[in-house]
Amino acid sequence: IQQQADEDAPHALQLDAAIAETDTLMARFRGLLRISELEDHQRRSGFLVLDPLPLLQELHDFYLPLAEEGEMELLLQVPDSLPWITGDRALLFEALANLLSNSIKFTPPGGEVILRGVNDAGSTRIEVLDSGPGIPAAERAAVFQRFYRVDEGNQQQGGFGLGLSIVAAIINLHGFKLEVGSSERGGAKLILECRQQLMPEA
């Protein structure tokens, strides 16, 4: 229908607006379904013990071209080995990819994004740091709520506000802890503590 519509016709803009609104609603619906799926703890039955080092290397390699395109530096800082973690590798990749892509998105050209792995007293800690505008302290507790979006310079950011909610659902499923702070470069610092504290199955 859209292809058949005359671009100069009065109803063409209304049709485009309707299609865009439908796409938005469908994206929100898919996001909510995704969160609902992740809140079903039966997903834990597929957890495996895995080495986080190859996961972090894969994330760095995957996002390096995007960072270079944005004229920023993406650094991987890891030790020779890290304590292994228990979880779903695909879900952990999805969560960390979301955090990393957000940092790259909001870091200006000439900036720096760091993906860091730390051995924290026998457990793995993963950090994503950047030199972007950061997340205001007053908004850090709410940033992972569904549909929440940071209002940066009167321009709403963060897609449909469900990306970080999906991250939170993945982290909760694994019994991990995610903290939001400020990096030494003045931007955001996201800290994933991989000390596992799983709640009993419902």
Rank of each mutant, 00 (worst) to 15 (best):
E179A: 11
T86D: 14
G134W: 10
L76D: 09
E7T: 13
A168V: 05
E127L: 15
N154R: 11
S165L: 10
L99P: 07
Q196V: 01
Q57D: 08
F160I: 11
P200V: 04
G163P: 04
A141I: 08
L173D: 06
E58T: 15
I85V: 10
A202V: 07
N154S: 12
Q42T: 07
M72K: 00
L76S: 01
T124L: 11
I166K: 06
I35N: 05
F29V: 05
E127Q: 15
N119M: 08
Y148Q: 12
S182L: 09
I85F: 06
G187N: 00
Q77T: 06
D88T: 03
F176D: 01
V128C: 09
L53E: 04
I166W: 02
G122S: 12
A17M: 01
G158K: 05
V113D: 04
L64P: 00
A202T: 10
Q57T: 05
L100P: 01
I170T: 02
L55A: 06
Q3C: 03
D6N: 13
I19F: 07
Q157R: 15
G175S: 15
F144V: 08
A5R: 04
S123I: 15
E69P: 02
Q3S: 11
Q4M: 04
K177C: 05
L75T: 08
E69A: 13
A27T: 11
N172W: 14
W84Y: 06
L32E: 09
I35C: 03
R185D: 10
I191F: 08
D6E: 12
T24A: 14
A67K: 02
P83E: 12
R43D: 04
Q42Y: 06
I135N: 00
A142N: 13
L74Q: 01
Q197Y: 10
L164I: 03
G134N: 11
Q77M: 10
S36W: 13
A90M: 03
